[in-house]
Design a protein around this nucleic acid. Structure first.
Lengths: 344, 344
DNA sequence: CTGAAAGCGCTTACAG
DNA sequence: CTGAAAGCGCTTACAG
């Protein structure tokens, strides 16, 4: 079903004017007399005329639509980014199309394709984990502006919005060191991932700058950073002769697994073992003790992504920028790590 | 910037054929010879032709776009529904436009309007809390199919997808009764809300059918169902001469506030006071003890909503359905309530 | 100040 | 089997 909708033509007919005049009157064109404008606008209101943006877009070869591809909308952090995207897109006058890739590379390609077909003006994406083949993304880059956020890849020459992963991680580890911790374990991902690697770099740098030797037993890689893996890896760490006195899980979810397991074994948090997570998810204040973690400002990431994308869309030159924008994070110290005044 | 994109015209020119023939060839029209089809398809692939769906839609007066309006994408339950919507929309060949109303009624109206302008084929919405004036929704209903989900209103004559609120709540209370609880408190919303009211009805019916007197002191209304309010209301309940032996918070978030407060006062959960929430949010397994709650299948709600909407869109008659579809929930018994074998 | 005409990219009834 | 033409709703350069 589709009921009839008022068009310029209908207005023109009823007013005995040409379509052009009606169009101009509604767009407040200086050529049109006030009298005519008034007549047109009145009738338009009366008949509840709404311009068909689809036709407008088609005419102007500009749709004011932006496509967004992300792995999973139900992840709180993604949803938070999405919120920023929606808010800023509205400000800038763009409509947002969402699709989920569910970390499926094939689907990701299809969505990219569909977005193109649908004539979006630009694409915002967080690339799927297993994206090996970036050829189709590269091809598209020539045709349409793309901005990457969160899950990015330096191999794709376009603007990328990320969090200051390395520094955030560095600061988290320094915080632990300042509270007297010396045997700091890290739980990271085994497969290569942009953020996991950079967080690991921060870990290494913090130890190095504080003259703490690296103990390979304290570096744990696992295939995903789920709560379950957090649990398993904690048991592994507790089995060590020389136990850690702090655990940095590069994900809140894993960190919560860590806390739950430590509690089960009656280990005091943070006195015996401190715990730090990453991302300041809602869970981090539900768990007891409350989790010390790194806050990633999702809305700001989304907002920034839209801003850069719109800038590229509206730029007249066909340039491809490839800046990397780092959004600042904040370490939020809660009960799962010791307080310290010596922390600079 | 916008790089050139291959069109039918370009293909026609290069092949020395008419645009019509090229169009038909690509649409696999029976009239066209295989030879021609082959030539066309080959060139199309070579030049990476993708039909402009925007133009197609415009031509056919069908955009295959669906607009979705929801209060807040960052709510896990909403995100879950969104996931279902995205998945099923893809199956049905529709693209999804998202907007957030943030419970702002004025914004909600604007979005409805924009969606119309953008020529969406149908609208899926969860109405904002304070929606008093439904006139604009009613007006729209004549022009375009609308399906409501989650936050609905019986005053709007259209298809509505909800959860079996009353029954779910009834079963939750019965579960408590079967475990021997007799003084069951409920924390609900003070302002009228569709779901709050229906959950309250379920509470009343369960008490009545089990011949338990209603104690007004145990019926607590608050303005929002936040963790903080959960805390405050718990303190209030604990101040009663005749304390409750179970608390049903009609929201997980509030229920978690309840649990945290009970723990603070060293009250044993579930022995002294049992706690039940509603919605099976991710938090419900993070909190300790794990929360007994009602699982609402968000994906299924989203999926169902799309199905009904598409049915209306694709129906030839201009009918307005106003069925209410109830999606079944499941009570998930965890550690915040007693186990029982006598539960039928 | 107003109108006729072309065109955005596509589909489709009508001819041939 | 193929093509010319109209039209979806709009905007805008060109005339007058």
């Amino acid at each position: 079903m589709k009921k009839k909708i008022c068009t310029l033509k209908e207005l023109a007919l009823k007013l005995n004017l040409s379509i052009s005049t009606v169009s101009r009157a509604l767009n407040n064109h200086p050529d049109i007399s006030n009298e005519t404008k008034l007549k047109v606008v009145n009738l338009a209101n009366k008949l509840n005329y709404t311009p068909n943006l689809f036709a407008q877009g088609f005419r102007k070869n500009k749709t004011n639509m932006i496509g967004v591809i992300l792995p999973n909308v139900t992840h709180y952090f993604s949803a938070t980014i999405l919120k920023g995207i929606l808010k800023q897109a509205e400000v800038k006058g763009y409509r947002v199309f969402i699709t989920e890739s569910n970390n499926n590379v094939k689907k990701q390609s299809e969505m990219l394709h569909t977005m193109m077909q649908f004539g979006v003006d630009g694409i915002l994406m967080s690339i799927s984990k297993k994206t090996k083949n970036i050829k189709d993304i590269l091809d598209l880059l020539d045709k349409i502006p793309i901005v990457l956020f969160d899950k990015v890849s330096y191999k794709i020459p376009c603007t990328q919005i990320v969090v200051n992963e390395e520094e955030a991680s560095f600061k988290a580890i320094e915080h632990l060191i300042h509270t007297g911790k010396k045997r700091i374990a890290i739980i990271k991902e085994d497969e290569f991932s942009f953020s996991s690697e950079r967080r690991f770099e921060g870990y290494l740098r913090a130890l190095k700058e504080n003259a703490i030797d690296i103990d390979k037993n304290l570096i744990i890689s696992c295939e995903d950073l789920s709560l379950e893996q957090g649990r398993r890896m904690t048991k592994l760490l507790l089995g060590l002769k020389n136990k850690p006195d702090a655990i940095f899980a590069i994900t809140d979810t894993a960190a919560i697994g860590v806390i739950k397991t430590l509690k089960k074994f009656n280990i005091k948090i943070p006195e015996d073992i401190a715990v730090i997570g990453f991302s300041n998810s809602l869970h981090s204040t539900i768990i007891e003790p409350k989790l010390t973690t790194v806050d990633q400002p999702g809305e700001k990431i989304g907002k920034t992504a839209i801003e850069y994308l719109v800038k590229e869309i509206e730029s007249s030159e066909a340039y491809v920028s490839s800046k990397t924008i780092e959004i600042k994070t904040t370490l939020i110290v809660r009960d799962s790590s010791l307080k310290t005044t010596s922390f600079i």
